[in-house]
Simulated scan of single mutants.
Amino acid sequence: MRILLITGPGGSGRTTVAAATALRAAREGARTLLLTCDDALPAGLVPGGVPGLAVRLTDSAEGFRDVLTALQEQGGAALDLLGARPLERDEITPLPGARELAVLAAVREAARSGAHDLLVVDLPAAPEALALLALPGELRRYLRRLLPQERQAARALRPLLGRLAGVPMPSERLYESAARWDEQLAQVEDLLGRAEVRLTAEPGPSAVEAVRAAVLGLALYGLRPGALLATRVVPDASPDTWLTVLAAQQRKALDEWTAAGLPVHAVPHLGREPRGADDLTALGVPGAAVTAASAAGAAGSCSVERPVEDRSAEDGSLVWRIPLPGAVREELELVRRGDELLLAAGRFRRALPLPPALRRCAVTGAALREGVLAVRFVPDPAVWPSAER
C-alpha cells in the first residue's frame, strides 16, 4: 500500500487537495482510502458513489479512551502500589496529542487491513503534522530509556529482589507490554518513513517562510517533500488590477520555490470554493504516481540520506553530512550526548542516533554550507580499535 501524506500551512487548502488526490486515484482504478482528522470536511468534497473510494474521519476521543483504558489494565499492579483509582471509560476526555495518536493508529490499521492500494492522509497543519511524524520515534526512544529491554534478562531475580527491597518489582507483563508497544510504534515509524509527503501552500510572502520551515522540519526527521502544491494560483494576465498585483506576488513565491529545487505544481484558483467531483477534478492535482519522488520508487522515495564521509586518509576525520535545506546558522544548536546527536533547527528538535562508526568518535566541529550540516568527528583513541591492540 502506498501512502501519501498531505500537509501545509493552516488555510492552504490541504484538505481540498487531499480529497482531490484521493478522488483522482480512485477514478484511475486504485482502491483508495482518504483519512482525515478535519471535522469540517464538507460532504460535497468527496461525493458518495465513487467506486473504490472510502473516507474515514479519525475519532480522537474514542481512540484516546481505548489507549488509556489499555494502559490502566496493563499497569494495574503499579497503580495499586500507588493507591490510584483508575479512571472509568466514560469519564476519560482526550488530552493534547490524542488526535496525533488517533491518526497513527488509523494509519497502522489501514496498512494491516490490506483493503486499499493507496492511503491519502489529510494531516493537520505543518507544525502539528511534523510533531505527529516524529511521535513514533520519540515514543520508542522514551520506552527504551524508561524500560530498557536488557532489564528483562533479570526477570527470574525479580521476586527475590522484591522480597529484599520490600516493594513489588515491575511485573513481566509490564515489559511484555513495552515490547509490544515498541513493535507497534516501529511498524508505524516504518510506514511513515516510506510515505510520500506533499506540501500545500498558497503562494505569497508569508507562505515562503512557512514552506521553508516545513521543508527544514521534514529534513530533520529524514523526509523531503515529493511535491509542493501551490494552491489558489490566479492567472498571470487579468484586466483586474488587484488580481494583477496578486499574480505578481504569487509568481515571485513560485520562482523562489522553484529556485530552491522544490517540485512545484500549480493548482488553479477556481474563483469559488471547490464543491463536488467536477470542481475537484478541475483542480488538476497530480496523480498518486507522477511526482519525481514517486518515480524513484515507493519504498523510501522521500527519505533523506545522511552519508558518512571517510576522510581518515586526508586529515584523520569522519564527516557526517546532514541535509538541512533552508537552515539558518544562528538557529542551529548541536549537542553530543552518548550515542545521540541532539540537533535543534529553529522550532524543531531531534535526537539523531549516531551511525555505529561515529559512536567511537568525538565531535570536533560543524559547519553549515548550502543547506547541508557537516559534523566532523575524529576517532577516540580510548575506544577506537588499533593495530597495536
Rank of each mutant, 00 (worst) to 15 (best):
L123V: 05
A102K: 11
A18M: 06
L373Y: 02
E314G: 11
P94V: 01
F348Y: 15
Y175D: 06
L283V: 07
L161P: 00
A293Y: 03
G10Q: 12
A129G: 15
A179F: 05
A134G: 15
R336C: 08
L229N: 13
E91G: 06
A125S: 15
L139I: 03
R180C: 08
L71Y: 12
G8C: 12
R27E: 15
G10V: 11
E196N: 05
Q149A: 15
A98Q: 04
V285Y: 08
A54G: 07
E273H: 09
A77M: 07
L262T: 03
L228S: 08
V188A: 12
A247G: 10
L368K: 05
R336T: 13
G346M: 01
A43D: 15
E370S: 10
A102L: 09
S294V: 07
R141D: 13
A248M: 08
L191Q: 01
P379Y: 02
R389Y: 05
A25T: 09
P323K: 11
E209L: 12
L343F: 05
D122H: 00
L157D: 13
M169H: 00
E309W: 10
S113Q: 06
Q184I: 11
V46H: 04
V107W: 02
A313K: 10
E196R: 13
G10L: 05
A131E: 14
R89Y: 07
A106P: 01
V335N: 14
D190F: 04
T16E: 08
P263Y: 04
L216K: 12
S301M: 13
D240W: 04
V67K: 02
E333N: 05
T258H: 04
A260F: 07
T15D: 03
T258G: 09
L119A: 10
R180P: 07
A178W: 01
E256Q: 13
C37Q: 10
P203T: 10
W384R: 13
V215E: 03
P136Q: 12
E340N: 04
V197I: 08
A367F: 06
T291M: 04
D380F: 05
P268Y: 01
H265W: 13
K252Y: 14
H116L: 03
A195Y: 00
A70M: 02
R108D: 14
A237K: 07
P51S: 14
L270S: 06
A362P: 00
G297R: 06
A248F: 01
A78E: 14
T58F: 00
G297C: 06
S303V: 05
A54S: 09
V46R: 05
L324A: 10
L57N: 09
E138R: 14
G75H: 09
V67M: 10
A219C: 05
E202H: 02
L119N: 01
S294W: 12
T244C: 07
L280T: 12
D380Q: 12
R306C: 11
S60P: 12
V211K: 07
P9K: 14
A237T: 06
A237P: 04
R56A: 13
R108S: 14
L71E: 14
P96V: 02
T364C: 10
D315V: 01
G29M: 08
L223G: 06
G76W: 12
T241I: 03
A154N: 08
E209M: 11
L192N: 08
